[in-house]
Amino acid sequence: MKPYIREKSTFTFDEIPEDTCFEAGYLVTVNAGWRSVTPYVDTEKCIGCSQCYLYCPDGVISMEGKTPVLDYDFCKGCGICSKICPRHAIEMR
């Protein structure tokens, strides 16, 4: 589980809460538009060490077994994963 995009992004008067308390992890916009370069994992080179997963400030890399999987909706393209990878298996393009 993680915060995810909801279909409902605008709220009527009655739907706006009375207090400042609302469902956790409620997202209405993605961050993909921030990116000027995009990380791509070379699965041949990847050894599944999880460093990219550990160091991603946005948490967009998850490990499926030994393979890192990226959520491009929320990757900002910072390139930390590429820099941290001991096998240079992530290329920023």
């Binding site: 589980m1 993680k2 915060p3 609302f22 956790a24 992890g25 409620y26 209405v28």
Partner: peptide, 9 residues
């Protein structure tokens, strides 16, 4: 609001 990025309390 309504972009709330913590999954926990």
């Amino acid at each position: 609001f309504p972009q709330l990025c913590f999954g926990n309390n």
